[in-house]
Every structure is written in C-alpha cells, then in structure tokens.
C-alpha cells in the first residue's frame, strides 16, 4: 500500500462552466443539428421561403401599389370592379383600391400574430418552468389554469372590450393573457418529466445551479414543444381575431386587419368572390406556411431526432 495523500485523490473544485462543458465533449452542436435536420425537409424549406417572401412582400406591395392606404377616397363610379390593370385586386363596395387595403391589413394581422406568439412564448415558458419546477406552485397554478380555461373566450373578450377598450395593444395583451396557458401547461409537463431524470439529479449533485439545469439540460427538450405551440398560435391568433372582428369585438376601425376585411366581404362575396378570396388566400398562405414550417422546425428541434 502506497501512501497517497488523501488530498490528492479527492479535492473540492470550484464549479467552472468551461470545465463542465469539457466532459463528454464532441463536435455536436444543438443548433447546428436543428439547422441540418430542417434543411433535409425540402418542402418545409420551400414553405419557409414562401412565408418570408410574403412578409417582405407586404411592405413592397404597399410601396409599389398605385394608391396609398391613408389617402383612399370612395368613388361611386368605381364600385365593385374586378381585378384590373388600374386596381390590381379590384375595388371594394365604396370603389376604393383593394390592393393596398389587403396588404395593409395583412401587415397588421401578421404583426398582431407575431406579437401575441412571442408574448405567449415568453410568459408561457417562464411560468411553465416555475410551475414544473417549484412543487408548491403546482396546486394554485393548476387551479388558475382550470379557471381561465373554462371561462368562455367570448365573455372574456367582450368584458375586456367593455371595461378596458379596443385597440391593438389591448387586444394583443388580452390574447397573451389567455394564450400563455397552453404553452405554460406544455412546458410544465415536460419540465416535470425531465427534471428528476438521473442525469439532472447527477448534475445537481455536482453543484450545477438550477438555472443551468433548466437552460442546458431541460430547455433543449422544450424548444420543440415551444416551436410547435408557436406554429399553432399564429393561425390561432388570426382565426380568433377574425372571429372577434366578425362579432364586432375586433381591433377597431382605425386598424384594419384581415379579419375585418373578411367580415366586410361576407356581405358581398357571393356576388363578388374576389373580395373574399384575396384576403382569404393571403390569410391562408400565412397560416398554412407558418404551420408547416413550425411543425418541421419543431421536429428538427427535438433532440431525440438528432445524431
């Protein structure tokens, strides 16, 4: 038996982020794998391009249009003209250019959908992590979920409109205020599932701080779900907005959205189908492409599909 200094065999080391990474080091990079996996799906890449082109085009379309949205004037001579050289998307019932209305509204709708999606993601993930990780929060948050989830959306949105008012900010906030629930619930379920896995237990025993466990060990599992939720949230927001506009609880006259155009077109589309088809096609393009891209990214982001 050789005499070995106990201190040389075991000694307490300060936690060091660099050193922690070094264990099991490979050239694996999470985001690179996501990217590779995503690129493999040609259809999804195509859809992503369509989506981005569409978003960019809403700006170009307004710039190249022959009429400015803010300067539209009604004209009895030009009502209900179909698409033509002068009016690329035709004219509405007041004889105003429809092209700039559709694209202006598309911009508003996309903006609303993105704001709501991001808001939902931030609030939802934050609360979801807490919900899953902090045991005593489970009871009250579950109850809150049940309560909010079972109040009919229409009642909720009507009361908001009556008590607070209408507008872009209010609507976005109100939608986030109910939309985060689903996201938080999904996140919470995953956090619950993974937080007591052995490697996390080991990680914690080794003194890794909680935030690091959450961000490095659990978060990659969440990304897939978060993206899936976002992919569903954008069509969901646009659908809810159009339903609310239909009920008169929409954004208000000052901010025309695709929902409002669809609602107005309801009265005319049997005679003048282009009034419905044009905004509907754009809405559908936005929602379908985002839905498919979101699904593809979500698959790509699932670490189980990596390597």
């Amino acid at each position: 038996m050789s005499k070995v200094n106990q201190d040389e065999l075991f000694r307490v080391v300060e936690y060091s982020a660099d050193a922690a990474e070094r264990i099991g080091y490979s050239n694996y990079s999470y985001w690179r794998s996501v990217w590779h996996n995503f690129l493999k799906k040609k259809s999804a890449v195509f859809m992503a391009i369509v989506f981005i082109v569409l978003v960019v085009f809403t700006f170009i379309a307004l710039a190249i249009g022959k009429y400015q949205y803010t300067e539209l004037v009604s004209n009895r001579e030009t009502t209900f003209l179909g698409p033509c050289a002068e009016y690329w998307f035709g004219t509405d019932n007041l004889g105003r250019d429809y092209w700039c209305q559709v694209w202006y509204a598309a911009q508003v709708s996309i903006k609303l959908a993105l704001v709501v999606a991001v808001g939902e993601a931030i609030v939802g993930v934050a609360i979801g992590c807490l919900w899953g990780y902090v045991r005593w929060l489970d009871r009250p948050l579950t109850e809150l979920y049940n309560v909010i989830n079972n109040i009919p959306t229409v009642i909720y949105m009507t009361l908001v409109a009556l008590i607070v008012g209408q507008g872009f900010g209010i609507m976005a906030t109100a939608m986030i205020a109910i939309g985060w629930l689903v996201m938080a619930r999904n996140v919470r379920n995953l956090v619950l599932m993974y937080r007591d896995r052995e490697y996390n237990l080991a990680s914690r025993c080794l003194g890794t701080p909680v935030w690091r466990v959450l961000v490095k060990n659990i978060f990659p599992y969440l990304i897939s779900v978060i993206i899936l939720r976002l992919a569903l949230s954008i069509p969901g927001t646009i659908a809810l907005e159009s339903t609310l506009s239909y009920l008169g609880l929409g954004l208000g006259a000052a901010t025309p959205s695709l929902g409002l155009l669809l609602r107005n077109a309801r009265n005319f589309f049997l005679d003048y189908p282009y009034l419905l088809i044009e905004p509907a096609v754009i809405v559908s393009l936005i929602t379908v492409t985002f839905y498919l891209v979101g699904n593809a990214v979500s698959d790509a982001a699932d670490p189980r599909n990596h390597v």
């Binding site: 569903l232 069509p235 646009i238 659908a239 159009s242 339903t243 239909y246 929902g259 669809l262 609602r263 309801r266 589309f269 049997l270 189908p273 419905l276 509907a280 809405v283 559908s284 929602t287 379908v288 985002f290 839905y291 498919l292």
Partner: peptide, 22 residues
C-alpha cells in the same frame, strides 16, 4: 388536417356556405 387547422373558420365556413347555398 393542415387546411382545417390553419385556415380561419370564417374563411372555411364561407366556403361551405358559398358551395352549399349557391
């Protein structure tokens, strides 16, 4: 399923209505 999940109901119902009624 993609169509139904992503296209707003206002649009798809309008299509049903137009097709059914006309």
């Amino acid at each position: 399923t993609v169509f139904v999940n992503s296209v707003p109901p206002l649009v798809s119902y309008s299509l049903v209505l137009a097709f059914g009624a006309r």
